[in-house]
Nucleic acid binder design. Structure first.
Length: 551
RNA sequence: GCGCCCGUAGCUCAGCUGGAUAGAGCGUCGGACUUCUAAUCCGAGGGUCGGGGGUUCGAGUCCCUCCGGGCGCGCCA
């Protein structure tokens, strides 16, 4: 990446300056570069001289560095500005090379190797299998997919994982709720538990169960009936969830069941590992995890007084499972309402000898607006907006894109009515339109018998219009944007980038006619079109949004 | 009460380890279709970055404090 190369040049200059006794010590490596807001400040700028100044004169240091900068064909000019910024203007040769790479399929444009050799598990959605996937999970799916894609784009080997909470109290309550509806269907007086599931879909599940098993369980012992119906209910619900996620474009590689963790003996193994580490204690008849010794604010129960393990016990077992599968890093995408559980998860990872290898990305709530009405997704309350409904109303592309426009820290306000109208305020259409428009130009060129551009040799030096320059420079920033978005776990950077790219393309389209009587200029502009199309498509691909060729 | 997150244009939000004159979209107002897609484009207006103090050559960004909002603080998940 260009920033890395310029950093190295400046570091070399600093080494020389140290050798010459001009500065006492080199700056922190790598030297940080940023893209100045203002065009006249060059392509890249660094404030190293200011950070190194101490009591000294930052401008003098900057000048000393610039004087010692090794020559490079990437750099056109370097200046010292303001209080001591070093501004770098990159050479056209470099810029044209970027455009050619962007226009070349399989050139790896936008890919980097920061994560090479790293195996990462990204767990996301992991909604309780007690009802249809709702809109909140939709945000998790969109963000999880994008994070996974970003990690892959930066060289990580990624496994996408879904944790099925089929072993806890909620699964039991759900089973009991379906059981009650099942009995009602057969004329038996039964009631859905007060704290059970009251949504209409529960009856639908019960009907499906009844179709499968008839009245076989009406007169069986309650224990047997409940377990059988619970298992069937979970089976159908998981099918629904899987189907909804697939429709949304989300595919998990691994669906791991909580009950399977127990069955595989991993819970016992986890408890043993914690005990070996001297981090468990019996107190009041329960078994505790002494997590407060590892940064949690209090200890936590692992096994209740009645002998049933807690949810945390499963969580620890799952950590044993995941680390046992060889992951270097575990990423959890969780709702912000789970932030209280983060310290205990981190404590558990540390207790298992994997301190610092677990990372939690917290997503703030989704607030749904349907017209004037504001509602929140809650499965238990029965007021739910299902992901399927949203996808049907606004489309998977628009829904995904909306979910990815905000940082994780920001609550997301999703106005269904507005999105449903497919009004132009939805930026996904803007971006997709730019892509379709480029495709249209390329089709037109082919129809007119214009030869396809020879990307490697097209005379890009002919691209001198300011909007051509701006578009090329935007393309050139893509690799840094992807790397930064991955590093910061911030997919919303991609939506911002691609909107800006689409905007730059529109300006180019406005100012420059692509297909003209000038074969060289036409070839250069077609190359720029190809590069832009490929980059929009690649970026949308990372976001899980389609790039249509016609609209 | 304690902990985490948030407070930036009328609205929804960006602002990368502190950098140079705080941005985008929408909305509002005014313009542009004999031209490769007008699902578009151009222009205008709009801000004490919640308040106050501090650190720094430099603060929307870091620290303290106050105000306002969200979430969490179970042998629930």
């Amino acid at each position: 990446m260009i920033t890395d190369e310029i950093s190295r040049l400046i570091e070399e200059a600093a080494r020389r300056a140290v050798a010459d006794g001009v500065i006492p010590a080199p700056p922190r490596s790598p030297v940080h570069l940023e893209r100045p807001r203002r065009r006249e400040h060059g392509d890249l700028a660094t404030n190293v001289a200011l950070t190194m100044a101490g009591g000294g004169n930052p401008r003098a240091i900057a000048e000393a560095l610039v004087e010692r900068l090794p020559p490079s064909e990437l750099v056109q000019s370097v200046t010292v500005a303001g209080p001591g910024f070093i501004n770098v203007k990159l050479s056209p040769v470099w810029l044209h090379d970027v455009v050619r790479r962007a226009a070349t399929p399989d050139a790896g444009f936008g890919r980097s190797a920061a994560g090479r050799g790293q195996r990462v598990n990204v767990e996301y959605v992991s909604a309780n299998p007690t009802g249809p996937i709702n809109v909140v999970s939709g945000r998790h799916a969109a963000v999880g997919d994008a994070l996974a894609a970003l990690l892959e784009a930066t060289g990580h080997e990624v496994t996408r994982e879904f944790y099925v909470n089929d072993g806890g109290r909620q699964a039991e309550l759900y089973g009991a709720s379906v059981e009650a509806r099942y009995l009602q269907l057969h004329g038996v007086d039964a009631e859905v538990p007060e704290d059970g599931y009251h949504g209409d879909y529960v009856m639908e599940v019960a009907r499906w169960v009844a179709e499968r098993v008839g009245d076989r369980y009406v007169n069986t012992p309650p224990q047997e009936r409940r377990e059988a119906i619970r298992d069937l209910a979970l089976e159908l619900t998981l099918q629904w969830m899987r189907a909804s996620l697939e429709r949304f474009g989300t595919h998990h590689d691994v669906w791991r069941s909580e009950r399977a963790l127990h069955a595989d003996g991993l819970v016992d193994k986890a408890l043993a590992r914690l005990a070996e580490a001297g981090l468990t204690a019996e107190r009041d008849g329960a078994l505790w995890f002494l997590s407060s010794r590892l940064g949690d604010d209090k200890d936590r129960v692992l096994v209740r007084r009645d002998g049933r393990p807690t949810y945390l016990a499963s969580d620890v077992a799952y950590l044993v499972d995941k680390f046992g599968r060889g992951f270097d890093r575990l990423v959890y995408v969780l709702g912000a309402d789970h932030h209280g559980t983060v310290p205990r998860l981190e404590a558990a990872a540390a207790a298992l000898g994997h301190e610092g290898r677990l990372e939690v990305e917290l997503l703030q709530v989704v607030t749904l607006k349907r017209g004037a009405e504001t509602l929140k997704g809650s499965k238990r309350a029965g007021v739910v907006v299902e992901l399927d409904d949203l996808v049907e109303e606004v489309g998977a592309d628009a829904a995904r894109y909306m979910f990815l426009t905000r940082s994780a820290d920001a609550p997301l306000e999703f106005d269904i009515e507005l999105a449903k109208e497919q009004a132009p305020e939805n930026p996904v259409y803007y971006v997709q339109y730019a892509h379709a428009r480029i495709c249209s130009i390329l089709r037109r060129a082919a129809d007119d018998g214009v030869p396809p551009p020879r990307v490697a040799s097209a005379p890009l030096e002919r691209l001198t219009d300011p909007s051509e320059d701006a578009l090329m420079r935007r393309l050139a920033s893509y690799e840094e944007v992807v790397a930064a978005a991955a590093r910061q776990r911030a997919p919303h950077r991609l939506t911002r980038f691609v909107e800006e790219l689409a905007g730059d393309f529109s300006a180019f389209y406005r100012d420059c006619r692509v297909i003209s009587e000038d074969p060289g200029l036409t070839e250069a502009r077609l190359t720029l079109c190809v590069a832009t199309r490929a980059t929009i498509a690649d970026c949308l691909g990372l976001l899980g949004v389609s790039a249509p060729e016609r609209m």
